[in-house]
């Protein structure tokens, strides 16, 4: 047995060795190249500064808005909406997904409607929602919640339906009671699918929120860009593009980190 112990992969390090690891600098190179090309395009006068502000100009706008606190206010407002709206949508989505996964009756009754609504771009609901909810906070929270709801419900449904029947047999053989079955088998078995759903719906909710703010809002990163456009402050618009992209990137990375931490038991 001692000889076998040698090829037992140490927990945490499992599988990591096979992946090609790009040094962190490597990912920065294309970004720097893009910024340089952008800067050169501006310096050569290929585009007039009213249309394309150089990266240096965007950087200056970012610094100014940070110093005045304007950027923080917009980002803060957007993240607040994301947090609240996402929490509502994700919880509702999980509950709905669980119900249609566990009840054949609910599935038969609700899934056609669900699947139809799921095909509608969330933005298409905006005009109607503005009429019902106005353009205040409830409207934006509702948009975010709807955006998070669908992928979350779908992921939860797939997660629960994907639990192998075999595992329920094992639970039956060991006489697990329903609460034990739920806590020890059903929940852990659906965690990977639900976490993937959370990541997908979180980034989706962010994109939809920024878009909704572009259309109708009095604050937030999207509204900041829209105001910049109206005032021909292209540097502000581009600063908004960069900040929303960065936030989306960080949300995805954060969710992936949580995902990999929570499912370390999976084969790498």
């Amino acid at each position: 047995m001692a000889s076998r112990a040698a090829d037992f992969p140490v927990a945490g390090g499992a599988g990591a060795g096979f992946r090609f690891r790009l040094p962190p600098v490597g990912a920065v190179v294309p970004l720097v190249a893009l910024l340089m090309a952008w800067q050169i395009a501006c310096l050569t006068g290929l585009f007039p500064p009213q249309v394309l502000v150089p990266p240096s100009g965007v950087a200056r706008a970012l610094v100014d808005m940070t110093q005045s606190g304007e950027l923080q206010r917009h980002v803060g407002d957007s993240l607040f909406r994301l947090t609240v709206g996402f929490a509502i949508g994700a919880v509702a989505g999980m509950a709905f997904g669980a119900v249609i996964a566990l009840s054949r009756l609910a599935e038969a009754a609700l899934s056609p409607l669900f699947m139809t609504l799921w095909q509608v771009p969330v933005i298409a609901f905006v005009p109607m929602m503005v009429m019902f909810l106005g353009i205040d906070e409830p409207f934006k929270l509702a948009v975010v919640a709807i955006a998070a709801f669908f992928p979350m419900a779908l992921a939860t449904f797939d997660g629960i339906r994907g639990v192998p029947r075999n595992w329920f047999e094992v639970a039956k053989v060991y006489r697990l009671r329903l609460p034990q079955l739920i806590r020890r088998i059903l929940l852990p078995a659906t965690v990977p699918a639900v976490l993937t759903g959370l990541r997908v719906s979180l980034t989706r909710a962010w994109v939809v929120l920024v878009a909704a703010e572009l259309l109708a809002a009095d604050s937030g990163i999207g509204q900041m860009m829209e105001m910049g456009r109206q005032l021909f402050q292209i540097d502000v618009v581009l600063a908004g593009v960069m900040v929303s992209g960065l936030i989306g990137f960080l949300l995805d990375r954060g969710a992936r980190w949580v995902e990999s931490r929570a499912t370390r038991w999976r084969a790498a």
Binding site: W167, E169, R184, P188, V191
Partner: peptide, 11 residues
């Protein structure tokens, strides 16, 4: 004991 081990992968 089943043909497939049926151990739970998260445990």
């Amino acid at each position: 004991v089943f043909q497939d081990h049926r151990l739970f992968p998260w445990m």
